[in-house]
């Protein structure tokens, strides 16, 4: 009995740590899809891009992957702002975002993946850092640092974003974009500019998420696909546009996946997100903390 209790509590811990990491992966989509209404299905591709940048700098110069990702934030921000500009000019302004805008992001996802395959091949790549390997033990509880560090980093990222969105002018304007663009314009802010900034921020989070991903697991270009279902499941489960909801959704999915992996085998874990997504859409489309 004690053994199964150990297993249970460690499955919960592993799930929470995993959920923390999922938070980092989903925050960007929470902003783009939840707040800006831009269905950026290419987000996982940007995350993988972040992983590969962390990998290159880490293996060449030996810099910590998380530090690399923070240094890369401005680059990803500009990349995101650029992508939004193209998206706005080509689709949003013409009112074609549903069919062609989606296809555009799908094309981006695909092109990024194939380019990474052409450059790096399909071998798994990994990084080195002092916290990959050891783990803390508290009684029967096991905290692998490889998971704990990304979890803490992700929650820090969440706190920073939530504070930014709640207490700065631009942050509040980003929230306002989702609610009433006309009112925002009357307050003297350009919705397009605000959305560009917000989308830039959403892509910037992919830099951090990518570094965390390659800390947690070895990465190859098509790994990103597994995260599409997860990211949107979490986003919908938490409630669109709610960052705290994203954290809760991520933790729930993390725990569910961890239980599935522990009791049924890890090969079934990818199916969990899809089940969660479909059930949420069928029974509570607004999500847990939906507006």
């Amino acid at each position: 009995m004690e053994l199964s209790f150990d297993l249970l509590i460690n499955a919960v811990i592993a799930g929470i740590l995993l959920g923390g990491f999922y938070t980092a992966v989903t925050l960007g989509v929470s902003i783009s899809f939840g707040i800006l209404d831009i269905v950026n299905i290419a987000h996982p591709a940007f995350i993988i891009l972040g992983s590969y940048i962390a990998y290159i700098v880490n293996t060449r110069l030996g810099i910590d992957p998380i530090a690399v990702s923070i240094l890369m934030l401005p680059v990803f921000y500009l990349l995101g702002a650029g992508v939004y500009q193209v998206y706005y000019e080509s689709f949003e302004r013409r009112g074609q975002e549903s069919l062609r805008g989606l296809s555009f992001f799908f094309g981006l996802l695909f092109v990024t993946e194939v380019m990474l395959i052409l450059v790096f091949g399909v071998d798994y790549r990994y990084v080195e850092a002092p916290y990959i390997g050891p783990s803390w033990r508290l009684g029967v509880m096991d905290f692998p640092l490889r998971m704990l560090v990304p979890c803490i980093a992700a929650l820090t990222l969440f706190a920073a974003l939530e504070l930014y969105l709640s207490y700065t002018f631009i942050g509040r304007a980003i929230k306002a974009v989702a609610q009433d663009q006309l009112a925002l314009r009357l307050m003297g802010a350009s919705p397009v500019r605000i959305k560009r900034i917000a989308f830039g921020i959403s892509i910037a989070t992919a830099s951090v998420a990518g570094a965390l991903l390659i800390i947690i697991q070895p990465v190859e270009p098509s790994v990103g696909r597994e995260y599409i279902g997860r990211v949107f499941a979490i986003c919908v489960l938490g409630g669109l546009g709610s960052l705290p909801g994203t954290v809760i959704g991520a933790m729930l999915l993390g725990i569910l996946e961890s239980f599935t992996a522990t009791f049924y085998g890890p090969s079934w874990a990818p199916a969990v997100a899809f089940g969660v997504l479909l059930l949420t859409l069928a029974f509570r489309p607004a999500g847990l903390l939906g507006r």
Binding site: F33, V39, I41, S98, L102, R225, E226, I228, G229, F232, A233, V236, P270, A271, A273, F274, G275, L277, L278, L281, A282, P285
Partner: peptide, 20 residues
């Protein structure tokens, strides 16, 4: 399950369907 909602949900669900 998904078409009663916004169009994006259907697209996302089909994307996840392949993985599952």
């Amino acid at each position: 399950l998904t078409l009663r909602l916004r169009g994006a949900f259907f697209a996302i669900a089909t994307l996840a369907l392949a993985v599952v």
